[in-house]
Design a protein around this nucleic acid. Structure first.
Lengths: 257, 257
DNA sequence: AGAAGGACCAGTGGTCCGTA
DNA sequence: AGAAGGACCAGTGGTCCGTA
């Protein structure tokens, strides 16, 4: 367990304020370099979330880390609880205020990949079975390594957004600029990321698994259920439409988007 | 749920008595042909095992199949409970008496593969995620299809024996003949199957996963924990022995076999 | 004793919903 | 209202151990 002093930093305007690499906490494993801009800037830290779970019992667990820091830079009362919400940012744009940008979001996926590589190296070393995907074990490892800002629901929630970023960065960037300009929120942008992926699947025999597996950074992520379902639904539409086009008047079935 | 009339056959000297294909119960899915000798002879059937679980409550479940047949060809008292135990047989040899031979054992692995292919086809059809291995889902499907003689503990128990059969049939056959001649029981033969696999791994960089994955019929099976551990232990021995050989007197560390 | 397999169990993939 | 994530849950991989 390597909780670290970095936790003492955090919070105000973090997206602007460069912070030392999260990686240092993890040590060995040889996570293949990674690097890039967000390796330096970016990450937020938090802890104490679990304290909500055992309210008002004080200090009979948690003996492994230092006393609770003053949270929120001295702003009284509430404890530091969550990551700042994401906002739609353009490529290269840093989020201001208590927000995180999309480059940071995608950086979290790269970090998970590095954690996976480390878990894989440890497993190989020990002759244990070796995960090929980002599993619960990897999330647990990330947490132990101090990356408490990484969690499964968040990462699963935005996988398809990261997929678009991997598979067609240009289209991904265009979408980000458009949604930022229109002042759309993250949820709307996230929804919009499905469509280009389904189109991509349409062009490649509807095999979304093959598409994920063809990309080395994406292949370590499970295909999200929703994306799989959308591809299936659109394929069915396409099939019935093409069957129809040879025999019926061409009326496109309603899209589920 | 397609429990079938085949269940009415079964039992006495079944290994000698050809029985209709189990496959017929399963129907669609297009299990890639399979075929071969055990497709016709072979399989035993049973049911009623679950009745042991709800003793002395009679017939308020199980409404989906016919009344209990006379078990054991009229021999009174006990119900038909389990598959006959395996004995060590030579290649091509049919087990006599209330026993099953090793060709039949390996045939069960081929059957599981066919069930997997059917499960995969159904999953693809529905746009659901598609298993690449023989999972619980496949065992459940096999049971529903009437192959109640297939179960997870049995299949997992003998995976490495099947692996040897796949990867080096000649060596597997030699081992079977030797153990039959010596009158060894199945457990002893099963234990002996580990060693040639570990040697094989030694020759191929100790990567037992890669070895399993290189063979199309074997790649659908999880590498057994014990085999993985043996490979790891032997690798450690080999490494320390080779380190030793350049600096120490050559004393081979004790093998864990 | 040797062996077959029901059934259990720890940890998984998946995501809901109480929270902020 | 929009969003982050603790925590739950059904079904998994793995195999023990009561059974025959």
């Amino acid at each position: 367990d390597t909780t670290n002093a970095l936790d003492a930093l955090s919070q105000e305007g973090l997206s602007e304020e460069p912070v030392q690499q999260e990686k240092e906490a993890v040590g060995s494993g040889g996570g293949a370099g990674g690097g890039g801009t967000w390796e330096v800037a970016g990450a937020e830290r938090k802890k104490n979330n679990r304290r909500r779970k055992t309210p008002s019992r004080s200090g009979d667990e948690d003996e492994d880390d230092e006393a609770a820091e003053d949270e929120e830079g001295g702003v009284g009362g509430g404890e530091r609880q969550r990551e700042h919400p994401f906002i739609v940012t353009e490529p290269g744009e840093v989020a201001r205020g208590k927000k995180n940008g999309l480059d940071y979001l995608f950086h979290l996926y790269e970090q998970c990949r590095e954690f996976l590589i480390q878990v894989q190296n440890i497993a190989k070393e020990r002759g244990e079975k070796c995960p090929t995907k980002v599993t619960n074990q990897v999330f647990r490892y990330a947490k132990k390594a101090g990356a408490s800002y990484i969690n499964k629901p968040k990462m699963r929630h935005y996988v398809h957004c990261y997929a678009l970023h991997c598979l067609d960065e240009e289209e991904s960037n265009t979408l980000r600029r458009a949604f930022k300009e229109r002042g759309e929120n993250v949820g709307a942008w996230r929804q919009a990321c499905y469509k280009p992926l389904v189109s991509m699947a349409a062009r490649q025999g509807w095999d979304i698994d093959a598409i994920f597996n063809s990309h080395p950074r994406l292949s370590i992520w499970y295909v999200p259920t929703k994306l799989r379902q959308l591809c299936h639904a659109e394929r069915s539409n396409a099939v019935s439409a093409s069957a129809c086009s040879s025999s019926c008047a061409t009326i496109a079935p309603p899209s589920t988007f």
